[in-house]
């Protein structure tokens, strides 16, 4: 019997096979999955904002793409994941409302995705698959056993990446 481990908004958690890790209703936030395929250990963080350095109130590391990924790697290595063997899959970063203005506040989804990619690149972690952008919400489930990420959206076919 496998458990479904939930990750909330601005939250992170780790998971080992045969359990499954999930986050519900990703909008402009980005869900980042890191996976150690050999030890079948996965971690997921649900980040809301791109950069902790631009915000005064930054104690919650899981809220930001930059500190969230660092914190997730730390948690994963604690349960035995190999830092050098990690690969990434990312989803989310949608623009939920079709704003006409190019206000910075409205482009937050794109900026979250950009910051996530930059951070992963700096750490030398390869992004194996992504489903980002567009204008709809996503629920994601990751299976550490197979390394597959299931993406569910309203009125759309399920996607496995």
């Amino acid at each position: 019997m496998s458990d479904m481990i939930k990750v909330g908004m601005a939250d992170l958690n780790v998971c080992t096979s045969p359990n499954v890790i999930t986050t519900l209703g990703l909008g402009s936030c980005v869900g980042i999955v890191l996976h150690d395929p050999i030890r079948k250990i996965a971690g997921m963080v649900h980040v809301m904002l791109p950069d902790s350095k631009k915000i005064l109130n930054n104690e919650n590391k899981a809220k930001f793409a930059d500190t969230g990924i660092d914190a997730l790697i730390l948690e994963m290595t604690k349960i035995g994941a190999d830092r050098r063997g990690l690969i990434a899959k990312i989803a989310g970063g949608a623009q939920m409302f079709a704003f006409s203005s190019n206000n910075e506040m409205m482009r937050i989804g794109d900026r979250n995705v950009e910051a996530t990619k930059l951070k992963l690149q700096q750490l030398g972690i390869v992004i194996k698959a992504e489903d980002t952008g567009a204008n709809y919400g996503r629920t994601i489930e990751f299976y550490p056993e197979t390394g597959m990420l299931l993406i569910k959206s309203v009125g759309k076919e399920k996607k496995l990446i």
Partner: peptide, 27 residues
């Protein structure tokens, strides 16, 4: 106020937009 912008989707996804704004100032 601006014109209305509407979205029909999962509550979590829609709430992420105001949540992110609150996220800039607190938890």
């Amino acid at each position: 106020s601006s014109v209305p912008y509407m979205a029909i989707d999962m509550a979590g996804a829609i709430l992420s937009v105001p949540a992110i704004e609150f996220g800039k100032i607190g938890d």
